[in-house]
Simulated assay, not measured.
Amino acid sequence: MFRDYMPGYVFNTTKTPAAAAHAWLTQAKIREGAPLSYLPDRRGDTGEHGERNEYGRDPDANRRVICPDSWAAKSGHPDTTPVTDISASDKPSCDEFTFAASYNSGGMPSDMGGTNQVTSGDKCAQTYATKLSDGTWRLYDDERTAAPTWSEVCGRSAMSGWVNSTSMSRFPTFAKELRLIDQDAYFVRTPGFDKCDASKPTIKCDIR
């Protein structure tokens, strides 16, 4: 009945600006605003991973391609800022976009319907999030690697673990309330970036 309706997951840009910036940059510069395709996992804590999608794919398997365990600690940019003032145990983490729980993840195999398969997160556009002394957040290219060409199919960013997890904390409720099923399409929305211009090779934009 509602096949022409496409929901949108909205980032809390005010609360997690770095994560929203990464999603916006990748979505605008690489994906050109295209919707995502949902990859559900399991029915409950006792279910089997991947039981709700056609290929039995565990989204964590996608995540491990782009964001291997301990990647941020071992290889993330040294200027990545944890928010220990909010969470004393906060550490840098790896944020991938598009989401691991999507068919558009760089880790999703092409023979399982993946649209952007890469062999490693090293193939993604590389950024990191840092907090300046005045309290503002900035998302920068990781200058230790080649600058993005924007022919990449994914983005990988080192950022606060608290920011990363908080930015996605409402996604399970979103998927449940909107009754998303395998391969359903949805948009990602990042309020505050609506007037940003992604058409230039070098992008400078402030949340408005």
Rank of each mutant, 00 (worst) to 15 (best):
Ser102Met: 00
Ser102Glu: 01
Ser102Cys: 00
Ser102Lys: 00
Ser102Asp: 03
Tyr103Arg: 06
Tyr103Lys: 06
Ser105Tyr: 02
Gly106Met: 03
Gly106Cys: 05
Gly106Val: 08
Gly107Ile: 05
Gly107Trp: 09
Gly107Tyr: 03
Pro109Asn: 10
Pro109Trp: 11
Ser110Tyr: 08
Ser110Met: 12
Asp111Met: 04
Asp111Ile: 02
Asp111Arg: 10
Asp111Cys: 03
Asp111Ser: 12
Asp111Ala: 07
Met112Leu: 03
Gly113Tyr: 09
Gly113Phe: 06
Gly113Arg: 14
Gly113Cys: 13
Thr115Lys: 15
Thr115Tyr: 03
Thr115Asn: 04
Asn116His: 13
Asn116Glu: 13
Gln117Asn: 13
Val118Cys: 04
Val118Asn: 01
Thr119Ile: 11
Thr119Arg: 15
Ser120Tyr: 07
Ser120Ala: 09
Ser120Trp: 04
Gly121Thr: 05
Gly121Lys: 04
Gly121Gln: 06
Gly121Tyr: 01
Asp122Pro: 00
Asp122Phe: 02
Lys123Ala: 12
Lys123Gly: 00
Lys123Cys: 05
Cys124Glu: 01
Cys124Ala: 12
Cys124Pro: 04
Ala125Asp: 09
Ala125Asn: 07
Ala125Tyr: 04
Gln126Pro: 04
Thr127Asp: 04
Thr127Ile: 02
Thr127Pro: 04
Tyr128Gln: 07
Ala129Trp: 00
Ala129His: 00
Thr130Lys: 09
Thr130Val: 14
Lys131Leu: 12
Lys131Phe: 03
Lys131Tyr: 04
Leu132Pro: 02
Leu132Arg: 15
Ser133Arg: 15
Asp134Gln: 12
Gly135His: 08
Gly135Asp: 08
Gly135Arg: 05
Thr136Cys: 04
Thr136Ile: 02
Thr136Val: 01
Thr136Leu: 05
Thr136Ala: 06
Trp137Arg: 00
Trp137Thr: 01
Trp137Tyr: 10
Trp137Val: 01
Trp137Leu: 01
Trp137Met: 01
Arg138Pro: 00
Arg138Lys: 13
Leu139Gln: 07
Leu139Tyr: 00
Tyr140Val: 10
Tyr140Leu: 12
Tyr140Phe: 15
Tyr140His: 13
Asp141Ile: 15
Asp141Trp: 12
Asp142Cys: 08
Asp142Ser: 08
Asp142Thr: 12
Asp142Gln: 06
Asp142Arg: 07
Glu143Ala: 14
Glu143Trp: 09
Glu143Pro: 12
Glu143Gln: 14
Arg144Asn: 14
Arg144Gly: 11
Arg144His: 09
Arg144Glu: 12
Thr145Asp: 09
Thr145His: 14
Thr145Cys: 02
Ala146Tyr: 05
Ala146Gly: 11
Ala146Asn: 15
Ala146Met: 06
Ala146Arg: 12
Ala147Ile: 02
Ala147Arg: 15
Ala147Leu: 11
Ala147Cys: 03
Pro148Tyr: 05
Thr149Val: 10
Trp150Phe: 14
Trp150Tyr: 14
Ser151Ala: 14
Ser151Leu: 10
Ser151Gly: 10
Ser151Asn: 15
Ser151Tyr: 03
Glu152Met: 03
Glu152Gly: 06
Val153Met: 01
Val153Leu: 09
Val153Thr: 13
Val153Ser: 10
Val153Asn: 02
Cys154Gln: 04
Gly155Tyr: 00
Gly155Ile: 00
Gly155Ala: 05
Gly155Thr: 02
Gly155Gln: 02
Gly155Lys: 03
Arg156Phe: 06
Arg156Thr: 08
Arg156Ile: 08
Ser157Tyr: 04
Ala158Trp: 12
Ala158Val: 04
Ala158Arg: 02
Ala158Tyr: 07
